[in-house]
């Protein structure tokens, strides 16, 4: 079944040359430190903390986000921090391609691999590493420093291994991510189509 098209208000979103769709209602601090891979959707009231970075001069990629990602409404992307040898500092975060982050989810992971779906209302703890092809169920709390291996489903509070994913998850997740981007269409375009027809 082809899923329903999600319309958004064209005036609310900025579309970049590489196909990123970023809501004007989102909070993106210090965009110079943030890299988007293209065709990524950032929905309203998202908070991306590009300002939290290691002390020092010059630019540094604080948050790298791949292509076909989705940052759901009210989600918070914040680089992880720790005290190392008595010095408090933030560390960069990397989010790979085809990663969906659900609504109201807080992410402080060090690295999220490709094809990962994170549900709504989750907390991904500091310095956790999520490998490729994973699924985090809704309302999961992943404790800090957790490593989640490939093909696993995690859920619960604290988040624990629940089951394995089928080998074909790559195809499912890729389709899902691409279809979501294709379904995410500006409202005005629809009117244009009607008039042109």
């Amino acid at each position: 079944m082809e899923e329903e098209i999600i319309y958004y208000d064209k005036s609310e979103y900025i579309e970049t040359d590489s196909g990123n769709k970023i809501s004007r209602k989102s909070v993106i601090s210090v965009p110079q430190n943030i890299v988007l891979g293209g065709k990524t959707i950032i929905q309203q009231n998202c908070i991306i903390r590009g300002d939290l970075r290691r002390k020092g001069s010059g630019y540094a990629v604080v948050i790298g986000i791949g292509k076909y990602c989705l940052l759901g409404e009210d989600s918070i992307i914040r680089p992880p921090y720790k005290i190392y040898k008595g010095v408090f500092s933030y560390y960069p975060m990397k989010i790979s391609d085809y990663v969906h982050i659900g609504q109201r989810t807080i992410v402080e992971a060090a690295r999220i691999g490709q094809y990962v779906i994170i549900g709504n209302d989750c907390v991904i703890g500091r310095f956790s590493v999520i490998k490729e092809y994973c699924r985090i169920l809704d309302n999961t709390v992943i404790p800090p420093n957790t490593v989640i291996p490939s093909f696993s489903v995690y859920g619960g509070n604290p988040g624990r291994f629940i089951s394995e994913l089928p080998e074909s998850s790559q195809i499912i997740f890729e389709q899902k991510a691409k279809q979501y981007y294709d379904r995410f269409i500006a409202k005005i375009e629809e009117d244009d189509k009607k008039t042109s027809n």
């Binding site: 079944m1 082809e2 490998k131 490729e132 092809y133 291996p149 490939s150 093909f151 080998e167 074909s168």
Partner: peptide, 24 residues
């Protein structure tokens, strides 16, 4: 073992007709 590429994969979706419900 974090390598996740497949040397052999015989998924049914690569061999049998895939059926989708397009519309009601």
């Amino acid at each position: 073992p974090s390598n996740i590429r497949f040397a052999i994969k015989c998924f049914a979706r690569d061999y049998i007709p895939n059926i989708f419900i397009q519309q009601l």
